[in-house]
Design a protein around this nucleic acid. Structure first.
Lengths: 201, 201
DNA sequence: CAAGCTATTGGCGATGTGCCAATAACGTGT
DNA sequence: ACACGTTATTGGCACATCGCCAATAGCTTG
């Protein structure tokens, strides 16, 4: 007669629900200020259940980061054919800025996670995502011989892109058009002029 | 008669000793894996003393980051006179790479601290250090009207420099000469060509 | 050598984490 | 309808960490 004391959900269902709560909280607060107790409370569940599904708190955090980066990676745009290098760079940058704008909080949370001091697994996750973007750029720009040097240059470029985006969306020292100009012309120069020079060094 | 159970040091002396231990441990391990207990143990002291000097663990950590960034900031080279823009850029990059090389662990620890999720005070510290470097670049390159836009572009450049350094020292996808070429030519192009274009956008 | 200052200790209380046995919700077979 | 088995969920134990503070004990000074 009496209503049950708790609702029993399917494994994947509950798992996803807790993950959603964790996602929100980890993007809002630093790691140390998010307790499994708080996550459980917000999910309307006992703390033990969180550990039942995810083991350690760190594991849950890694799942969250994996999800964030995966979300961003799937938003890579399709590649139109037969464009000039300039047009292609423009397009890539536009798509990138759109994605960053649309998922600002997600994006910064993922990027910020990088510095979570020396955690090897976390470094691996974030680096793999960065490499995905680099490979996408390589395909899009159709550079003849994609060497390791060029990849390194493009990874460095992603560092520039990260801060430039921050200057636009957070610090507001640049507007969107300026961020676009900066990113597009840097990309062009890096690929066309600087990368070959670096290769020869 | 019996030797005393502990040595009593002066306030600053003990403070500096604990800080040194904390510096080492925080640069070696992630924040969560460094306990005040461990710091106290390595310093040969009771845990309570750590809190007596630094209050919360977070405060101690901030002190460490402050010290790391300050150390790097004091290594800014003097500015020689009457050089071409190219030569000046070369010089700045060379000094930068030297400093990064000499203090590799310190440098990466400071840079990594940045992402310590959304901590406002920590963001402030790291940003101020970045701005110091940017101002130094501005002075060195003697650009006519140092606008806010140019500053933003240079901050973005520091993002590129950070990753490029990592590619050289950690991932080893670039050698020193290549890192130098990348950083010097990017800096030149950004200041001479791209920043004005961004300004007009 | 007594007295005072304070660096240092040692321990209490609260909170967080990892784990696991007991429990209860829900699907299934009869 | 009802017992049964599965397993999602709870609740609590054991331990570590953190922040704090009263008591203690080095060192210094007169």
């Amino acid at each position: 007669m009496a209503s049950p004391r708790y609702r029993r959900l399917g494994r994947d269902e509950r798992r996803e629900q807790i993950l959603a709560v964790a996602r929100r909280m980890f993007t809002e607060l630093p790691y140390t200020e998010v307790s499994t107790t708080a996550i459980a409370r917000e999910a309307g569940v006992q703390r033990g259940l969180v550990h039942y599904y995810f083991g350690a708190k760190r594991e849950l955090f890694l799942q969250v980061v994996r999800h964030l980066t995966a979300t961003l990676a799937t938003q890579l745009p399709p590649l139109p054919e037969g464009l000039l290098l300039e047009e292609m760079a423009d397009l890539c940058v536009a798509h990138f800025l759109d994605a960053a704008d649309a998922n600002a909080t997600t994006w910064f949370a993922a990027v910020d996670a990088e510095g979570f001091g020396q955690d090897p697994e976390l470094m691996r996750i974030v680096n793999r995502t960065r490499d995905l973007t680099v490979e996408h750029l390589l395909k899009a720009l159709r550079v003849p011989g994609p060497t390791d040097t060029l990849r390194a240059v493009l990874r460095a470029y992603s560092g520039l892109a990260e801060v430039a985006t921050r200057e636009w969306l957070q610090h507001k020292a640049l507007n969107r058009a300026q961020a676009h100009t900066l990113l597009a012309s840097s990309l062009l120069t890096l690929v066309r002029d600087i990368a070959p020079a670096v290769e020869r060094s």
